Amino acid sequence: MAQQMILRGFVNTPKGQIHYAEAGQGEPVLLLHQTPRSWTEYREVLPILGQRYRAIAMDTVGFGDSYRTSEKASIEHYAAGVIDFLDAMEIKRTSLVGHHTGGAIAVELAATWPQRVNKLILSSCPYTDEEDREIRKTRPPIDDVAFSPDGSHLIELWNKRRAFYPQDRPDLIASFVLDALTVLDRIEEGHNAVNRYKMEEKTRLITAPTLIMTGTEDPASYPRMEPLSKAIRGSVSVEVKGGMVPMPEQMPEVFSQCVIDFLG
């Protein structure tokens, strides 16, 4: 089956324009990226999913080419932006795929707007309950770097992520750096939104069929896979051997097949 061409565009919402990329036709599947990334996290996934579905990857509000806002960043705020996007695209219901921060946003959507969600796929999603939020309060910033006249902040940004990426795939870190540089002045906003999110209050509200897929080499999410699975009634779990933080880019075929198998 031939891969589908990726088409890109903007859609107008009440608060500003949201950028997206899509491939294929049929039942919609909306993909939500981690922060501080953009739709490009799914560049290799879209054409694969597009062979069966209308696969759409949007830039979360405040990231990529979507509009910025002065509102305090929160998972609830990001999710409301997704609803505005779906309304503007005239999509009444969709399956959701969320990776890392995108997973937290997907949880909020499935809990607060269940009528808009068919199936839910949480990829390497954090589980921020009260215990985890306390731990996160003492963690150092993940990506925060200060601008340097000699450009050394670029090396610092690169090195902050090296341990979480395959050592033979510098191209994946390069993709991260390109996205991160567009929001360097507020690079921690997405992480901070996750840190504050009371996910345990929302997971109990989820009724959509849910898949939790987590890379075994992802130290940020793999230890939280079991408690997240227990928190969502009826969910099923899949361990992706060797999967790291950039799993959709690192192994797009494996990632896509997990999605296809669950969506049926």
Score class of each variant (00 low, 15 high):
residue 1 M to S: 15
residue 2 A to L: 07
residue 3 Q to K: 12
residue 5 M to S: 13
residue 8 R to V: 07
residue 8 R to A: 13
residue 10 F to H: 15
residue 10 F to A: 11
residue 19 H to F: 15
residue 21 A to S: 14
residue 23 A to Y: 10
residue 24 G to M: 00
residue 24 G to F: 00
residue 25 Q to C: 04
residue 25 Q to M: 02
residue 25 Q to K: 14
residue 30 L to S: 02
residue 32 L to N: 00
residue 32 L to A: 10
residue 34 Q to K: 03
residue 41 E to A: 13
residue 45 V to M: 00
residue 47 P to A: 07
residue 47 P to K: 07
residue 49 L to F: 06
residue 53 Y to Q: 05
residue 61 V to A: 06
residue 62 G to H: 10
residue 64 G to H: 06
residue 68 R to D: 07
residue 68 R to A: 02
residue 70 S to K: 10
residue 75 I to Q: 01
residue 77 H to I: 05
residue 77 H to C: 02
residue 79 A to Q: 08
residue 83 I to F: 01
residue 84 D to R: 02
residue 86 L to H: 08
residue 86 L to F: 04
residue 87 D to S: 08
residue 92 K to E: 05
residue 96 L to S: 07
residue 97 V to H: 06
residue 97 V to N: 08
residue 99 H to R: 02
residue 99 H to Y: 07
residue 100 H to W: 09
residue 101 T to E: 13
residue 103 G to Q: 01
residue 105 I to P: 00
residue 107 V to Q: 03
residue 109 L to D: 08
residue 110 A to H: 02
residue 115 Q to Y: 13
residue 115 Q to M: 03
residue 115 Q to C: 00
residue 116 R to W: 03
residue 119 K to P: 03
residue 130 E to S: 11
residue 133 R to D: 10
residue 137 K to G: 11
residue 138 T to V: 13
residue 139 R to S: 14
residue 142 I to C: 03
residue 142 I to K: 09
residue 144 D to T: 12
residue 152 S to V: 12
residue 152 S to G: 08
residue 153 H to Q: 12
residue 153 H to N: 12
residue 155 I to E: 14
residue 155 I to P: 03
residue 156 E to V: 01
residue 158 W to L: 01
residue 158 W to K: 10
residue 162 R to W: 00
residue 164 F to D: 15
residue 164 F to Y: 15
residue 166 P to S: 13
residue 168 D to V: 01
residue 169 R to I: 13
residue 173 I to F: 10
residue 175 S to K: 09
residue 176 F to E: 02
residue 176 F to I: 10
residue 182 T to R: 14
residue 182 T to N: 04
residue 182 T to L: 09
residue 189 E to S: 14
residue 192 N to P: 01
residue 193 A to N: 05
residue 194 V to C: 14
residue 196 R to T: 07
residue 200 E to T: 10
residue 202 K to D: 12
residue 205 L to K: 09
residue 208 A to N: 04
residue 211 L to S: 11
residue 211 L to I: 14
residue 215 G to I: 03
residue 215 G to T: 11
residue 223 P to V: 15
residue 228 L to W: 04
residue 229 S to Q: 15
residue 232 I to R: 06
residue 234 G to V: 02
residue 236 V to G: 05
residue 242 G to A: 09
residue 243 G to Q: 10
residue 249 E to N: 14
residue 255 F to M: 07
